[in-house]
Design a binder for these strands. Structure first.
Lengths: 129, 129
DNA sequence: CTTGACCTTCCCATGATGGGAAGGTTTATA
DNA sequence: TATAAACCTTCCCATCATGGGAAGGTCAAG
């Protein structure tokens, strides 16, 4: 099938499919005489895998690792679990950091009357800290 | 003072100070005969403001808005509060989204034995979804 | 005077996801 | 058969914020 069809079947845009091919995340597909890319079921299956992994927030590099493990019938599952757990740890660290930001921001915002007068503790907080 | 000194006094790297000047976030400073930038106290004060706002995760565009409000002695505080609250809402939405990802990821990871055997529900989840 | 630190501008990179131009190919319909 | 729209190709650029580094000029201390 053509790239547009592969895109429709996988949720990955044609642009991203070409990008993934360029960065070596997916193999180059067969080509028709016209020069059009010709995708098979295995290609589509792989792109779906990538799409789901992206949806879960895995970076391209981590997806590269996951694809390698997926291809390796003998992979130890602890290696897969490790990739997932690192990703989980990253997400948790980001959330924690954001909570810290939120605490400060909410404190500032709640100190602000939010009216027509110019006095504002948010600006004071930023200018003095 | 020179850019290096301004950088040290504000926590903003020299590179970023030049970038902020280029994108019009800060005005062009005076120059010495040598061509070196010459920063005054007002410049430094502004860069500190920017630095604190970046630390709180405000985007450059939102900082542009905040700087405008900071300069405006007559700004109504509700406009400042609005910028802050939009930022808060963005952060909260991001956190919520990440929690959703975490739930799925943890479920997958917890279903994985993480041993030497190849069977892994994480890969299955990604390949089938 | 010399040398190292500092400064300048310019060009490129990062990660993931596009937009769009220029031109070729396919497909359905009249 | 002709046409037009949809699809496809490669190429170049942009996004956001933050750099690295090259090439070359300036400053300041020893």
């Amino acid at each position: 099938m053509n790239i547009g069809t592969a895109s429709a079947h996988t949720g990955v845009s044609a642009k991203m499919i070409r990008y993934y091919e360029e960065i070596g995340l997916v193999p180059k597909p067969l080509r028709r005489d016209s020069g059009y890319r010709d995708y098979g079921e295995a290609d589509v299956h792989r792109l779906r895998f990538i799409h789901r992994a992206r949806e879960l927030g895995f970076s391209i590099e981590r997806i590269r690792d996951l694809l390698r493990l997926w291809n390796d019938r003998r992979r130890p599952s602890r290696e897969v679990k490790k990739v997932a757990q690192e990703h989980i740890a990253d997400l948790e660290a980001q959330i924690a950091r954001m909570h810290g930001l939120l605490a400060t921001l909410k404190h500032l915002a709640n100190s602000c009357e939010g009216n027509s007068r110019p006095h504002c503790p948010i600006l004071e907080g930023l200018s003095r800290g």
